[in-house]
């Protein structure tokens, strides 16, 4: 099934070009319908209806202030106190943008990793075990196991396995960000949202992080905001281009980068602005 709502004819550049993913192997896990985000009276997101495929990586790109981070943070309602979000956010058929939803339970299924690494001022072990303990996992063996697998999945285990009791604040930027990923996946979410996770990292750490994300895709559906076009090109299956609070183009990543249908997208991916 192809959903295309081209606004103009095919010969010229379009104003909007949305092709929702339609891959039977990777059914839609999350979608937004009629989503609007307001900061006070100012509308930050006006057209942002997207479907996200499961076990794939979707990249959200666009110039600063285009609304991509706002959009991402709305998906697990991190914007609840800051902005007004209207419309539906369908997660496996359930609208999670309604007041009766328990946001805490929901966020355990839709996890998030932030722009700047934010390990807690606790030991490496406790950074991961802490949220689990609060939700009743107290068995030492079980915790040990989860800590180990999470750190392995985040490709950090080998570097820290002897220092699990040391403070997480002593980790390097790249290691700290991996720890944050390990922490996020330890609660076994379904979807992982990443808000420019590599923007504070050096090139080596960035490429390690990308490898990790490609690994994680087998078990998680990933949505990542990135400033870095090459990064979107390297790791994502789908890419959405945001501009001024609207999704202007959404398609497979290869289409977006090789054959953009919208002028602004084309300008952006070729580095002419943004």
């Amino acid at each position: 099934m192809f959903l295309s709502n081209d606004v103009q004819g095919n010969t010229e550049m379009l104003e909007r070009h949305i092709v929702q993913p339609a891959d039977a192997e990777h059914p839609t896990i999350l979608s937004t319908e009629d989503l609007h985000v307001y900061y006070g009276k100012k509308e930050a997101i006006s057209e942002g209806d997207l479907r996200f495929a499961s076990n794939q990586i979707t990249a959200l790109i666009g110039p600063s202030g285009s609304g991509k981070s706002t959009f991402l943070r709305s998906l697990n309602r991190m914007n609840d106190r800051i902005a007004t979000v209207t419309g539906r956010i369908m997660y496996r058929g359930v609208d999670i943008n309604q007041p009766s939803i328990d946001v805490y339970e929901m966020r355990r299924r839709v996890g998030m990793v932030f722009q700047r690494p934010n390990p807690f001022a606790k030991s490496i072990y406790d950074n991961i075990a802490f949220a689990l303990r609060l939700r009743g996992t107290t068995d030492k063996h079980e915790l040990d196991e989860i800590v180990e697998t999470s750190l392995k999945q985040a490709a950090l285990w080998n570097q820290v396995k002897d220092d699990l009791n040391k403070s997480a604040l002593a980790l390097s930027g790249g290691q700290a960000q991996r720890l944050c990923i390990a922490r996020a996946i330890a609660v076994k979410p379904d979807i992982l949202l990443l808000d420019e996770p590599a923007s504070a990292l050096d090139p080596v750490s960035t490429s390690q992080l990308e490898d990790t994300l490609l690994e994680l895709k087998q078990n998680y559906s990933i949505i990542i905001v990135t400033h870095n076009m090459q990064q979107a090109g390297r790791i994502s299956e789908y890419t959405a281009f945001f501009n001024q609070g609207r999704v202007l183009e959404y398609d497979t990543t290869s289409h977006i980068f090789t054959n953009p249908q919208v002028q602004i997208t084309s300008d952006y991916v070729s580095g002419n602005f943004g």
Partner: peptide, 10 residues
């Protein structure tokens, strides 16, 4: 939906 609407410990 039931799970998500349950009043969690949090």
């Amino acid at each position: 939906e039931q799970q998500l609407k349950r009043h969690s410990k949090a």
